[in-house]
Design a protein around this nucleic acid. Sequence first.
DNA 1: ACACAGTAGTTAGCCGAGCGAACGACGTAG
DNA 2: CTACGTCGTTCGCTCGGCTAACTACTGTGT
Lengths: 154, 154
Amino acid sequence: MPTPSPAPDRPCADDETVGRLSVAIGRLNRRLRQEGIAADEMTLSQLSAMASVDRLGSLTLGELAAEERVKPPTMTRIVDRLEVDGYVRRVPDPSDRRCVRVELSDAGRSLLAGTRSRRDAFLVERVERLDPEGEARIPELVALLERLLEDDGS
Amino acid sequence: MPTPSPAPDRPCADDETVGRLSVAIGRLNRRLRQEGIAADEMTLSQLSAMASVDRLGSLTLGELAAEERVKPPTMTRIVDRLEVDGYVRRVPDPSDRRCVRVELSDAGRSLLAGTRSRRDAFLVERVERLDPEGEARIPELVALLERLLEDDGS
DNA sequence: ACACAGTAGTTAGCCGAGCGAACGACGTAG
DNA sequence: CTACGTCGTTCGCTCGGCTAACTACTGTGT
C-alpha cells in the first residue's frame, strides 16, 4: 500500500503514534486559538473556565483551578478579567469565608452560548469536510480523548 | 446498543460533540505541557519547531513559521532561544541572502530524540491505561485528528 | 479561650508565546 | 538606477503559566 505511514511492523500503537498525537494536539490547539478567538474577545482559557463553571455550576476558585489543571494564581487572574468584563461574579461562600465561589452572570451565559458556536465553526467545518465515514467516527474520537484525560493523581 | 454516547436523535455529531472536542484538545494540551516540560528545559513550541525541522529538513524561518502556524516574529524568538541553547543553527541561504535557513545541530537531534520519548511517556501511560479495545483505536484517532488539520487556506 | 497549624485566595515578579507595526537588508521589475 | 516587494528582525503590547510570599480564615489542641 502506498499509504506512507502505517508501517505495521510495530506491534502496537506506541511511540510514533503517540508522538504524532501530541503534535496533532498542539496544532489543533493553535488553530482553535486563531479561529475561535478572532470572532470575539475571548481567549481559550477564559472560555474554558467559563464552560467549566457552566457545566459544573458554582465552583470555588480552587476547584475551578483544579478542573482547569492550572494553579490558583493563574485562575485568579483569569477570573479577574472575566469579572471586570462582567461575565462572572465572585460570591463569598457563607459557610467558609476563605472560599470564593465563581458564578456565571447572564451576560456570561449568553456570551458563552454565542461564542461556543462561533468558536466551533472551524471544527464543524473541518468535520464536515471529512467523508461521512470519518464524520461518524468523531464521537468515538472525542470519547477516547476524554478517556485519555480521565484523572487520577497530578 | 448500550453505548452511552450515541444519542441518535441528532443527525450528526455536531455541536455538542465538537464543543467537547475543543475542550478536550485544550486540556490535553495543558497536560502535555505540564508533563512533558518538567523533565527537560524544552517548551512545547520549541519542541514542535524542532520536530518540524527534523521532519522537513532545513527550512527558512518563514516556512517554519507557516508550518507551525505562527507569525514570523514569534518564530524569530523561538529560534533565538533554540540557537543560544545550541540546538539549532541559523544558516544564511546562499542564493537569497534575505532568507535564513534553520538547521538542527547534533545536540538538537539527540535532545529531540531523548525528549520526545520522555514527553510522550504521559501519553503512552495514558494509552496503556485504556482497555485493549480503546488502545487499538488510537491510531485511527490520530489519523482522524490529522485529517482535521489537513490544510487549505489560512 | 487562645495559640498554632493548615487551607483558600491574592499579590508580586518572572518568563514564554502570541500578535501587529515599523524597520533594515536584500531581490526584482521597470 | 529607482521603485517596489519580500524576509527577517526589533519593539512594544497582552495573555497564560509558574513560584514564593502574604493575608484571611478554619479548625484543633491544650
